[in-house]
Simulated assay, not measured.
Amino acid sequence: MTPKDMLLGLAIIFAWGFNFVAIRWGLDELTPMMLGGLRFLIIAVIGSFFFKRPNTPWFWLLGYAMSLNFGQFAFLFTAMKFGMPAGLASLVIQSQAIFTMLFAVLFLKEYVRPYQLLSIGVAASGLAVIGLNGDDTTMTVLGFAITLAAASSWALGNVITKTISKKGYDANLNLIIWSCWITPIPFFLSAYFIDGADVMWQNIININWKTAATLAYLSIIATGLGYGLWSYLMSRYPAGSVAPLALGVPVVGLTSASLVLDEQISHIQWIGVLIVLVGLIMNTIGGRWLARRANQKI
């Protein structure tokens, strides 16, 4: 990568890593469902002025919106409301890589290589260490479990995105933006039945500068700018060169949550964090290593 593009990559890492601190701030002012609904409504309203509607049929647009948008963030915001620290959430949500491989085998009939199975085992063992050792921290078992549900929803969205691409439809930033017209509907319906109309109205009329800034960050910076730059890098470089950048997101998430929110992680959980990162790195670079070995033999 050129130095300029490396800086853009670092900007993505910091935007997505700090995203979890912003979510924590947003949940101090809004309920999880209202935070999600308003976030995606802002993305849809602003983004549709700059990006044309994708050629993706409504059926697949709906599947994308309900899995990757609504499912992932409804679970993630709820998990952080019910005791999942922002820093650990930024790491545990990366277990989507494990669920994506499993769903790809089930629904796409893809083949899993031995190194991928090994990486799944390593990352899963790290998650187990984190999940079973939260007594001395603010993390709850419920929050941890719901975060895993968010990761599985993200993974299902990845499989749907791959299916959309295979069918020859748009699976780019246009899809992300226009799917956001669908996403607020289940969020606001959930808010109505979970929180009630009075709470929804109070959330809206009590929006202050901090809430507005948080929503702007989540929608414009983390989603619009973040995914826009990610698409730019993916279009210029091999996926194997860009994908490892995502490993920096939990590092920034854990660090920023510790510095800004004063979140504490136990020593044993830090060991679990390192184990998960090792598993994710094995999954990311394993394919490239095998390809290099194959080329050397040729």
Score class of each variant (00 low, 15 high):
residue 8 L to Y: 15
residue 12 I to W: 05
residue 13 I to D: 01
residue 19 N to C: 10
residue 20 F to Q: 07
residue 22 A to T: 11
residue 23 I to T: 10
residue 26 G to Y: 09
residue 32 P to E: 02
residue 35 L to M: 14
residue 35 L to C: 08
residue 39 R to V: 09
residue 47 G to Q: 08
residue 48 S to G: 10
residue 53 R to P: 00
residue 57 P to Y: 01
residue 57 P to H: 01
residue 61 L to R: 08
residue 66 M to E: 01
residue 75 F to S: 10
residue 81 K to V: 08
residue 83 G to P: 04
residue 93 I to E: 02
residue 95 S to V: 09
residue 98 I to P: 04
residue 104 A to D: 02
residue 109 K to A: 07
residue 118 L to G: 03
residue 121 G to I: 14
residue 123 A to D: 04
residue 127 L to P: 00
residue 127 L to H: 01
residue 133 N to I: 06
residue 139 M to E: 09
residue 140 T to P: 02
residue 145 A to Q: 11
residue 148 L to S: 12
residue 148 L to V: 15
residue 157 G to F: 11
residue 163 T to A: 12
residue 164 I to T: 00
residue 175 L to H: 10
residue 177 I to W: 01
residue 192 Y to V: 03
residue 204 I to C: 03
residue 208 N to P: 02
residue 210 K to Q: 12
residue 211 T to V: 06
residue 211 T to H: 05
residue 215 L to S: 01
residue 218 L to N: 13
residue 219 S to P: 01
residue 219 S to V: 04
residue 224 G to F: 13
residue 225 L to E: 01
residue 227 Y to C: 13
residue 228 G to V: 15
residue 235 S to K: 15
residue 237 Y to R: 02
residue 237 Y to H: 03
residue 239 A to K: 11
residue 247 L to H: 10
residue 264 Q to K: 11
residue 267 H to P: 15
residue 270 W to H: 07
residue 275 I to G: 05
residue 275 I to Y: 03
residue 279 G to M: 09
residue 283 N to V: 05
residue 287 G to Y: 10
residue 289 W to F: 14
residue 290 L to W: 05
